[in-house]
Simulated scan of single mutants.
Amino acid sequence: MPPSQTSTQRTDTAQTSTKPARRRGLLFRLAAVLLGFLVVLVVVEVGLRLSGYAPVSLRNIWRLNPLDETRQQRGDYYSLYEENPHGDFEPLPELDGDRWELLGGDGAPRPLERIDERPWCVEYRHSSLGLRERELDGYWPPPGTTRIACVGDSFAYGQGVPAAKTLPRTLEAELGNGAEVVSISRVGWDLSEETKQLARFRQEHHCGKAIFVFVLNDLLLTKELALRNEAIFQRMHDREESLERFRSGLWQLGPSRLCQLISASLADHRVSQETLAWYRDCFDPAKNDVGLDLFEQQLAELASLKDCRVAFVIFPIMRQLDDDYPFLAAHERVAEMATAAGLPVLDLLPEFRGQDARSLWVNAVDNHPNSRGHAIAAKAIARWLREALPEFLEPDERH
């Protein structure tokens, strides 16, 4: 056999023998990578368990309804919380008898015996007019007093805040003797309903001044924007359903904290991004021309209310309160439209600049302003009224 042929055969044999070795080496490295990845997952899982991590449930706030007929008609209830992060909440009330209904965050009934799982509460007690307000005597305010209506939605109402620490009460305290600030607000009201409720209140009680506390979600929406808003709430519902499946236990050792972390983080990011885009589009004429046209009409109506001077206050969304605040353009547009309608305008955003937004939340689930947020707003409004609108504080004249 020629030497060249022998050499070729040896080379082929060597190459053939090295292929299985290479495959074994590749498989070994792949197995090592997978094993390392598995070890990392286990370490992270153990770390999350040791730290006590559990994703925040959006259904964490329970509700206690009194079954007394009068209080039911007025819409009284309590929100119940696991913790008291800012010291705003109060201990549970004394429960006399069985005339109470306990509901979980999903709206489903819970045995009343489980109420100790939520030892903190905020009470929502309403007047005969259905307002979170004391009963007023007679049509006129006391002599030498100016009555100011604080009109708005859940921000002015004080969702998640005891009545004594809400914007109307703290503003009244800031203004001092001679001012009576009345809360005409409710969760879920938009500008149309707020105007209607102010008119209803003025049939029963004199009120010559009103502060409208505007939040960016108070606009009328097109059908498309309304559907997008519903879709965001559906994603929040889906997030909770997904977490419930993970909590049911995929492992023999219990539910995976890592799976919960990943699922909650992805869902929260998506909801956050879609919510930001939704707020921006609400003030885009190309996306919400109907809502903005109606808003312009509503502002003109407020400016021309008979025997009632209106001031307009813009309350910021409690998110990213720095130079990158995502809704600055919307604030500027609202202020421009309200000023053009002839309304005095105060934008509270500068008062909140530089604040840690999370420190101003009711809690990790409820992003409404807590008592400190209400106090910041009240101080700014009181200062603005004294400096820019002193006539707003003049006592009401009886006639």
Rank of each mutant, 00 (worst) to 15 (best):
P119L: 01
L131D: 01
E241F: 10
T195Q: 15
H205C: 05
S242A: 15
C150E: 13
R200A: 12
L175Q: 02
V161L: 04
S128G: 11
G249W: 07
G158P: 13
G176H: 03
G152K: 02
N229H: 14
C259Q: 15
R235S: 10
P119H: 09
V187R: 13
L198H: 00
V151Q: 02
R132F: 12
T170W: 04
E180F: 07
L171H: 03
F246M: 12
H126S: 10
Y139G: 03
I211F: 02
C121N: 05
L253C: 12
A164G: 11
P141W: 09
L136P: 11
V122D: 01
A156S: 13
R247G: 00
F155L: 12
N229I: 00
K209P: 08
L250W: 15
A210C: 02
S242D: 14
L129A: 14
F246T: 10
S154I: 11
C207D: 04
R200N: 11
F155A: 14
G158K: 05
R200F: 08
N177S: 15
A173Q: 11
E204C: 04
W189H: 01
W140N: 07
S154G: 09
S127P: 03
Q234C: 06
L220A: 15
S263C: 08
S154D: 07
V213N: 05
W189V: 09
P255L: 05
Q252W: 15
N229W: 12
R134I: 13
I148H: 01
V182C: 00
T145Q: 02
S256R: 09
E133D: 06
Q159L: 15
N177D: 15
N229A: 14
R228H: 11
R247P: 04
V182A: 00
Q252I: 13
V122G: 03
P141Q: 08
T145S: 00
R169K: 09
H237Y: 13
N177W: 10
N217R: 09
L227E: 15
V213Y: 01
G249I: 04
L216H: 07
C150R: 09
C259T: 14
E174R: 01
G144H: 07
S256I: 06
G176L: 02
E193R: 11
E204G: 01
W140I: 00
E172M: 06
L131P: 03
K196M: 14
W251G: 12
E241Y: 10
A231L: 04
G152R: 05
A231D: 11
A179Q: 01
P162L: 09
S256E: 11
A156C: 13
L191V: 10
G254P: 09
S185F: 10
N177G: 13
P142C: 02
A179L: 01
F233T: 12
R132V: 12
D137E: 15
L219W: 07
T145K: 04
E172P: 00
S256T: 09
L220P: 01
G188D: 05
R200D: 11
S263M: 02
L221P: 11
G208A: 11
S248F: 12
R247L: 13
V213P: 00
E241R: 13
G176N: 03
F233E: 15
T166N: 01
Y157P: 07
E244H: 14
L191N: 02
E244P: 09
I148M: 07
P142I: 03
G158L: 10
T195D: 13
R202Q: 07
P143A: 01
C121Q: 06
